[in-house]
Design a protein around this nucleic acid. Structure first.
Lengths: 341, 341
DNA sequence: CTGAAAGCGCTAACAA
DNA sequence: TTGTTAGCGCTTTCAG
């Protein structure tokens, strides 16, 4: 037979203390004698006591929930971010509310503000491109809602911003292509609403420049971080005279579009065309040839962001943090020495 | 300047009614005169009133949260399920708590029971393979926790079970291959812990049988729903004498492993080998050649499951529902007429 | 260092 | 059909 769930009063009376003392122990507040703490802890476990979240939320006027905002078609990216934030939430007894959304939806700001107004969430983690959507960020600041952004562009104020070194990584990737003997390299840019797209382009250009390759003549196409856009851009690049010997796509989806375009033209990859992507999504390994790409520490990014936010919510962090994590090049079969047949 | 958030009392006094009446309107309870209801609604919107979730939860001893359990490496599948359940939750003012887990973790049962014990969730949606994990299902039934399973195998009792027609779809897919002139078809089975793996095999066999092809001699390999397992199985199948002219992989990940194995052996797909997958993950379109596969109505499955669960939680549904949704064959370039070079 | 009492904002009986 | 009165289980003053 199931007994009624134990409450803080049960614990208090069992330990021969007041509920306030029990509450103190549970909330790790100071000013409790170690011995008293022990008594509480003992009673707690004897009764298999678990605080009632709703009651705690009501009394403390906090939800102990953080919201995760995303508008990203890449499932693997989103899952990675979810996993990282969840890991932190679990260790700190918070819950995660996922909130997929459309950056372009006119209702977005209201939607998010209402999440907070209804005390559904205490704070928010914003991923790209939502994190770069000015109107929302401004509204959050005005409403004094805690948030942490995952983005390259820091924003003013006490708001932390976590990112990966897109520019650096793109620089190194380009270096790699050049070191393989490529000099006519086509570049496919990502969705212009994502800060990362601009940074990756910057890194590409910087590397060309560093190697004395005139970058104003480098063929650059505007993509959208999707397979189809990559395919379309590749069609244009491959029609150029002289044809690029390598194509650097700003993400793996577009790189796969490039592969498809190459196949359709009967171009051998990597013998006649080197292709590289970015992000190292799981499928980069699964296409043929496996994609050379750059691996982002997504989980780590998410973890740091969540940790930051929880620190802010619990007054453990004052200033804004500005963290940049490092990506790694992953060299696979889709890139090879130029002219190697 | 920000005013204090309106409470139910504010609404009541503004409408000149008691809080109970307001509560009735908010909870769609009967026995309220339409005119009274109007007064409440007016006050509600004038004050921009939103009920405090925590208070409601505490008083009603319900969390208005449902949990989503999954242990599936396929991000696209998981995202689809999340999206479908979220859509329903939003329309019915519930929250979704995602809970990725490891079916093999010994702590799984405790972990899930504690979600309910701490009144974190009112009910659960189980996806495969968690939904087929007996110990958990049994524990949930014993603890009288509401749940809905996404699985092919219905379980006893008043518990609903939503599924797709894996067997039927595999049958049709095999039919398709046979109609293209293939008779020596290799089959790669999915992870044996997933009910779907067995059903797909059953459909495959049934189709062979229906066409008078001896299925006891059909080459069948055991995979794990992963790229690598598909690759390994394909290696074995392609080494057979005579070599199969088609391979039916039980999911797209494994099918991609087959494609890779074929490339490495210099086998042209589909000219020398037809390949088909299952699930229609987004990347099925993005590989070369694009994969013939079967599309599952994942969103719909998730929606129905969530709707079911919410109905149960709100006493709107008594018996167990047993729903099977239909998959669609998606014919792409990876399959072709046998012997067509 | 510890405790008593007063809510947090809502729902649930039970009256009226 | 509507209102009154208790709680739900916790945190927060504020006293000791």
């Amino acid at each position: 037979m199931r007994k009624r769930r134990a409450t803080i009063e049960d614990v208090a009376s069992r330990a021969g203390l007041s509920i306030k003392t029990v509450s103190r122990v549970l909330n790790l507040e100071p000013n409790v004698r170690p011995q008293t703490r022990e008594r509480v802890l003992a009673a707690t476990s004897e009764l298999d006591y678990h605080p009632n979240l709703s009651a705690r939320r009501l009394a403390s006027k906090r939800s102990f929930v953080i919201g995760l905002l995303y508008d990203n078609p890449d499932s693997d990216y989103v899952m990675g971010i979810q996993e990282g934030t969840l890991a932190v939430c679990r260790t700190r007894d918070y819950h995660l509310l996922i909130h997929p959304c459309r950056t372009c939806a006119p209702s977005l700001v209201d939607e998010v503000l209402s999440l907070h107004r209804r005390s559904t969430v205490d704070g928010l983690i914003l991923t790209q491109p939502v994190s770069d959507f000015e109107p929302l960020v401004t509204a959050l600041i005005e409403s004094d809602i805690a948030f942490v952004r995952i983005s390259q562009r820091p924003c003013a104020g006490k708001y932390s911003c976590i990112s990966v070194d897109d520019e650096q990584a793109a620089f190194r990737m380009t270096d790699h292509l050049i070191s393989l003997g490529h000099s006519n390299i086509g570049f496919i840019m990502g969705h212009p609403d994502h800060g990362s797209a601009h940074d990756r382009l910057k890194g590409f250009r910087a590397s060309l420049h560093a190697h004395g390759i005139p970058c104003d003549r480098a063929p650059i196409e505007q993509g959208l971080y999707t397979f189809d856009s990559g395919y379309a851009c590749a069609q244009r690049l491959l029609a150029l005279e002289p044809r690029p010997t390598a194509i650097f796509a700003s993400d793996d989806h577009m790189a796969m579009g490039v592969l498809t375009a190459a196949y359709e033209r009967g171009l051998a990859v990597p013998a006649e065309l080197s292709v590289c992507g970015f992000d190292d999504t799981p499928m980069a390994r699964y296409v043929w040839p496996p994609l050379t790409t750059a691996r982002q520490p997504i989980l780590e990014v998410a973890r740091v962001a969540a940790e930051c936010l929880l620190n802010v919510l619990n007054g453990k962090e004052l200033g804004a943090r500005q963290v940049t994590l490092e990506s790694k090049l992953v060299l696979r079969g889709s890139t090879a020495r130029a002219g190697a047949r």
